[in-house]
Design a protein around this nucleic acid. Structure first.
Length: 477
RNA sequence: GGUCCCGUCGUCUAGUGGCCUAGGACGCCGCCCUCUCAAGGCGGUAACGCCGGUUCAAAUCCGGUCGGGACUACCA
């Protein structure tokens, strides 16, 4: 007897699938499932198949599918990493055949009950379909759905790599619908048939499907095939411990991408939801994950999607980048639609000098825009709160002092700093206080990159012009 | 309500009977460094849901209890 948990149990080669329904945005939970399947396939020298579950025509648009493919590629799952994409709708014939076979074998029967009918009969004790039409011998007809006849006795045991062997009493499994009144096939069956014809050996998916699993397994058996090994990964939840939802929570992978999360950080973080690599470390190269990840080790309890921790990871990944790479990766946020300056103002050489100063200060790439805008804008955008805070007495004196001292100073950060220190000293201020008015005048904000380096980079003329402008505003107030 | 799953710091986890006065990471707090803010360094805060049992010994095994979640469509 073969060990059913052995990866080679079915056909000898592992075949897993990622089967998203194209809903228009790629969910972080889906990304995690895709990653799990991918890693598993690679570890076993198996194949990952991508199948678009487009049974519901309203959820079927070509651009949705393209979005999925793009998202997968961003995560590192390129087109040569999987078979497909296949479309569930393309298997309609096979699915119909399976339905017909179940009906012919007496494993399914027609039913004309509406949901209201059933509830009227069972009242408050409603526990699924009551089997009313089981033996009525109804023929096919308009509005008559086809239900699968589940066994009255025995149990269905699901072999699950993460949860052991969840067992369900067959008597508790209702006779569920497999084909609609109009003859079209439902997900429950379509999904099974597709897995069957695509030779899927392991189904790795989110826990929300666990309740459906005994039904699907019954279908596999009724169709005369050996069910796959299952692995139900815990759901990802929000701070209220509910499954992440498109409506309530920020779940679109694209949004995170647009915010400047690095794919490496994202996929590393996603894999750490419910699992950890060996040793006291969490940020690890993907190769370590591919080496060490085991579905059997996945924590079966739900995991909170902690954006704060994701940001921390992202910051670490950003800091670990060689500067040249950092510069390159910032590029999208230095142009429209993110940049607030006109394109011809942008100077890559200037950015290259600013970049090392910024690299330790951004947690997500999108933060780079506001951090360097002062260098590419004709005039800095003055943040009013910063102005109030930075332009306190004796700001005007300090600015006047700077104007004079910077006039003929050697234009290096070190020298500018020394001059600023001297100005501050005249007012009994340490550099920390003294630099504030200058910073606000030149960058518009109270916090930012190291000031004197910034001044050195944008040059004497622009620095002095901004100090003068600030002085003008100050005297006008 | 029914079925199933789950339960270690606030969060993600390590832990598979003695190595646990429970380790790491994020967060938070403090100190150092410091031109702001970060980064970095150092230190701190904080958990085995509860009750019984098995055992010389339990976070680890068993039972119960409480709590949370998923599913419960002629959606996928």
């Amino acid at each position: 007897m073969t060990d059913p948990s052995s990866p080679e149990h079915a056909s000898g080669t592992v075949r897993v699938r990622f089967a998203p329904s194209p809903t228009g945005m790629f969910h972080v939970g889906g990304a995690r499932s895709a990653l799990h399947n991918w890693v598993f396939a690679r570890q076993h020298g198996g194949t990952l198949v991508l199948r678009i579950e487009d049974t519901d025509a309203s959820r079927n648009r070509p651009e949705w599918t393209e979005g999925i493919i793009r998202a997968l590629a961003w995560l590192g799952i390129d087109e040569d990493e999987y078979e497909g994409p296949y479309f569930q709708s393309a298997n309609a014939d096979e699915q119909r055949k399976a339905v017909e076979r179940l009906r012919a074998d007496g494993r399914a029967y027609f039913c004309d009950c509406t949901r209201d009918d059933v509830i009227a009969r069972t009242g408050d004790s409603y526990r699924g379909y009551d089997g009313h039409c089981r033996d009525r011998g109804l023929e096919a007809g308009p509005g008559r759905a086809l239900r699968f006849r589940t066994p009255d006795e025995g149990v269905t045991t699901v072999v699950d790599l993460i949860r052991g062997k969840p067992t369900f009493e067959n008597a508790n499994i209702e006779d569920f619908v497999i084909a609609r009144g109009d003859g079209s096939v439902l997900f429950m069956l379509a999904n099974v048939v597709d897995d069957m014809i695509q030779g899927i050996t392991h189904v790795i998916r989110a826990e929300e499907h666990l309740s459906n699993t005994p039904k699907q397994q019954l279908l596999w058996e009724a169709l005369g095939a050996q069910p796959p090994i299952w692995a139900h990964v815990p759901v990802v939840v929000n701070e209220k411990r509910q499954k992440l939802s498109k409506r309530r929570d920020k779940v679109a992978l694209e949004d995170y991408q647009a915010e400047g999360f690095l794919a490496e950080a994202m996929r590393n973080y996603l894999m750490l939801l419910g699992w950890a690599p060996s040793g006291d470390r969490e940020i690890v190269p993907w190769s370590v994950i591919e080496e060490e990840f085991r579905l059997e080790d996945v924590n079966p309890s739900p995991a909170f999607f902690d954006v704060k921790k994701l940001r921390a990871f992202n910051g670490e990944y950003i800091r670990a980048l060689p500067v040249e790479d950092f510069i390159e990766r910032c590029e999208p946020w230095l142009r429209e639609p993110y940049a607030s300056w006109s394109p011809e103002r942008y100077d890559p050489a200037v950015f290259a000098r600013l970049a090392p100063l910024a690299q330790t200060r951004v947690a997500v790439l999108s933060e780079i825009t506001a951090m360097v805008d002062f260098a590419f804008l004709d005039e800095p955008v003055i943040d009013e709160a910063s102005w109030k805070k930075g332009m306190k007495e004796p700001a005007a004196d300090i600015l006047r002092g700077a104007l004079e001292a910077f006039q003929d100073a050697e234009w290096t950060a070190e020298e500018l700093k020394t001059r600023a220190e001297e100005i501050g000293a005249r007012h009994g201020l340490k550099l920390g206080k003294a630099q504030a008015p200058i910073r606000v005048a030149v960058t518009g904000r109270t916090v930012g990159l190291p000031l004197f380096e910034s001044l050195q980079i944008i040059g004497r003329d622009r620095t002095l012009a901004r100090v003068r402008a600030a002085l003008d505003r100050l005297s006008a107030e």
